[in-house]
Every structure is written in C-alpha cells, then in structure tokens.
Amino acid sequence: MTGFASGQGEGFDHRWSWDIRSVNGRGLELRFRLPDWIDGLEAKLREILTNQIKRGNVTVSLRVQSNAQQDGTVTLNQPQMMSVLEAMLQIEEQASAMGLSLAPANAAQIVGQRGVLEMEQSTPDTEGLKQTLVNEFTSLVTDFVASRAAEGRALEDIIGSQINQIESLTKQAAELAEARKDDQADRLKQQLARVTGNVEDIDPARIAQELALIAVKSDVTEEIDRLGAHVATARDLVQQSGAVGRKLDFLMQEFNREANTLCSKSGFAALTTVGLELKTVIDQMREQVQNLE
C-alpha cells in the first residue's frame, strides 16, 4: 500500500530530516538510506517498521547534518614532516650536482604537504543521538501508518463496489444457466435424433451414459456456488481490521479460476458474455487488492 510521512528534528549539535514512503508489494521489503556512522540505527528502525507494517516496498531516508563548527585539534605529524624535509634535501643536492639552482621552500609549502598537519575530529555522541532519532522515528511511523490507513479506507469503498459487481454478475450467470437448461435439452434431443437416425443397434445404456457426461461437463452450478461463497468471504475480509491483503490476493486467484471454468463450460453466448465480464471485474479488483496491507 502506498503511504508517505516526513519530519525534521534537531539535537546533539545536529539537525536532520526524515522521509518514509512506500509503494505496492506482494511482501514486505525495507530499504534504508541512513548515515553509516550511527551504529545500530538501522536495526532499531527495522524492528519498529516490521512491528507495524506487513506488506509493501518501504524506503526510509534520513539526512543528518552537524550544527557545530569544525572544532578539531590540529597536530604536527613529526615523522611525516621529517620525511618531507629529507626528500627536499635530496632533491636540492641532486639539483645542485646538475648545476640547477632551486628557490628555497618556506614553511607554508612544507605544512601543505599531505600528512604533515593532521586534524583530530571530536567524536559525536552517537548513542544519545541514536536514541533521539529512534524515538522520533516511532512517532513518524504512526503518521505513516495513518496515511496508509486513510488510503485503505478509500480502497475499501472501491473493492466493496467491485464485490457487489461480482455478486450481481454471479446472479445473472445463475439465471442464465437455469434458462439454458431447456435450450440445452432441445439441442441434445436434436443431436441425438440425428445420430440415432443414421446408426442401427444403438445401446440405450451407452446413449444415457454419453448424455450424462455431456450434462456434467456443461453444468456450472458448482462454479456459481463457489463464486457466491467467495463473495461472502471477500466481504468478510474487507470488513476485518488488520492485514488482509495476502488473504484477498489468494482469494482473487480462486475467483479467477471459477470465472475461467464458467466460460469454458458455458456453451451459451449470453452466459459466456457474463463470464467474460466477471473476469474483467475480477482483474480490476485484483489490481486494487495489491494496494492493501
């Protein structure tokens, strides 16, 4: 299910901004973009999210900036400075031997060499900062879940309407299947008359067996009954609180299976049309179900 929440905060000489967003997903997939110098933060945030969310592709972004000035201590790296001076001396001696005269180096040039001066940065209080961030994230997740719930309520109306459509089409299918019986019986009699008129010594038992087999293959009563049962189950799931997306996702497969069988067994143009309409609504509902927790 899609959702979004953002927030800002400040403390421990730092300021930060949050961004949480999710898109549809069959399972739960979490991605974190966090500062790598705050040890243990991702594990804490992951635990909070998995306790609140069961489905969706969720991305959590956190940007942290320091408010403090660069207050590190500058130190002179004596070994590195001696290495630089010795190298300069060798260069001057080699140049002199070749008749070259080099301009004298000054202190600024020497300290500008890599490693001669070192900056010792102070270590921030990451434990206190981490706990503050975790507490703020907990509140932010509450807003995030609320945004997903608001969308869920809107989807509930859409899916409820689609369930009503499936129920209506199922009733139409039942009426057409009942009306088809007389027409089907007439067609069977005509076909039987053509066959028996051209064949001698027909076994009546064999004819009865074939007729029964045809009747079974074309009977859609079970499919219609199961569609009705699935409608009741879907309504019950939509009205439940908590995560029902996966259950509805599985139920949509059952809906689709019955609609496919109904179309393949219909043998009646009007009933086939209703079956195709059923498949269309079921596909539309399945897309919406992917948005549910």
Rank of each mutant, 00 (worst) to 15 (best):
T59P: 02
S139P: 00
Q121A: 14
E92I: 09
D39C: 01
G40Q: 04
Q52N: 09
V60S: 02
V141P: 14
L45A: 05
D125A: 12
N135T: 12
L45K: 00
I38R: 01
S22Q: 11
D36R: 12
S139I: 08
L49P: 05
M88S: 13
Q121G: 08
N77A: 14
G40R: 09
G40L: 07
V84D: 02
D36N: 12
Q131R: 11
V74F: 11
P104L: 10
V116G: 10
R63G: 12
F137A: 08
S61E: 07
L76K: 01
Q121W: 10
Q94A: 15
L89F: 04
S139D: 14
G25H: 15
S101Q: 14
Q131S: 15
N77R: 04
M119C: 02
Q131H: 06
G56W: 08
V141A: 15
V145M: 08
R55K: 09
S96Q: 13
K130C: 10
E47F: 10
E120R: 13
Q70L: 14
W37V: 02
V134F: 07
F137G: 03
D125L: 06
F32N: 00
T73N: 11
S22R: 10
V84G: 07
G25T: 09
S61D: 02
M82D: 10
T123C: 00
D143E: 15
A43L: 12
V58Y: 04
D125F: 05
A105L: 14
L45W: 01
V84R: 06
L28K: 04
N24C: 05
R26F: 11
E42R: 11
D125K: 01
T142K: 14
R46C: 04
V111H: 00
Q90M: 09
